[in-house]
């Protein structure tokens, strides 16, 4: 069930956020969203990612402190979306 969300997320990130030079197709659920070895997103991207979650899945992040673990990896984010999506 998780695989389609992971692939969707990768495409969303590649299309809307990811810097050219990060080959998103080679990244997977264990890869960190904010590290150089992973998606290499920054604080500006983080807000765009949060906005995309609301736009595409109806998932609202109201407090980042309570949601830090959600943003560890692509997999942790996908799992959170599966549990909380309204779209």
């Amino acid at each position: 069930m998780k695989q389609p969300v992971i692939e969707e997320l990768k495409q969303l990130i590649a299309r809307h956020i990811s810097p050219n030079g990060v080959d998103v197709s080679k990244l997977g659920p264990e890869d960190a969203l904010f590290s150089e070895e992973g998606f290499f997103l920054d604080s500006i991207d983080a807000v765009e990612l949060i906005a995309l979650l609301q736009d595409n899945y109806g998932v609202s992040i109201e407090n980042v402190r309570n949601s830090r673990a959600v943003f560890n990896t692509l997999g942790s984010l996908a799992e959170y979306i599966e549990k909380n999506r309204t779209k």
Binding site: F34, E36, L41, D42, S43, A46, V47, I50, N63, V64, R65, R68, F71
Partner: peptide, 16 residues
């Protein structure tokens, strides 16, 4: 912390 990418989410947290 956010600028140096050592804690990207720091600027999005409520301040304690």
């Amino acid at each position: 912390a956010a600028r140096r990418r050592l804690d990207v989410l720091a600027v999005l947290e409520p301040d304690e």
